[in-house]
Amino acid sequence: MIKFHPSDEMIHQFAAGSLNPALSVVISTHVDMCPHCQKQVLDAEQLMAEQLTKAPKPRLNSHALDAMLEQIMTSQAPAPKASNDDYSNVLNLDGKLFNLPPTLARQQNRIGHWSRVPGKMLRAPIDIGSDECINLIYMDKGSRVPEHTHKGQEVTLVVNGVFNDERDEYTDGDFILMDSSQHHTPETQDEDCLTLAALDAPLHFTSGISRLLNPFSSLFFR
């Protein structure tokens, strides 16, 4: 059962197409997994469609309009879009198999090289051609990310598995937003965990010896 969802405002912005690409991928993946938010998105789209039909409309130059209409009806059909059959929805990570939600399955060819990061974790960037940073992060059983804050915002989505921090436990589909004021220490216990994370600035480690990691924090999620 999913406990943590994006805010209504975020869902609305997603449905409007106004969020940045990295955040849109994370929200879209959550929506794949969450019937509640699927409904929210449909409602938001319907609302915006109503606004579109009811808004005052400009009077048009009918000559230009007729010309466009004629152009469209004599146009070539656009090339067909890639179909879902072109994608695999299974991620094979060193023999461990994960079932990817549709949005992530469509990103398979953008998943980069998996590399080790401190704390028994693996990380692979997803190159969506934008400036924001988006990564798949695999935490093995008993992994721990040193306590840190974020210079910007971090969103995390659990794709499969369980992890926890000081506040709560998060499982499949849970969506977690952390801002720069919040300290947290994500860790796994007896289960491993695959997450999707989007970050707009490197981590900043806050406690004890792990502060020494700060000069290297870009190794973690960038």
Partner: peptide
């Protein structure tokens, strides 16, 4: 110049 002037819905 498709738009000239607005009319009510």
């Amino acid at each position: 110049n498709m738009t000239t002037s607005p009319v009510p819905t």
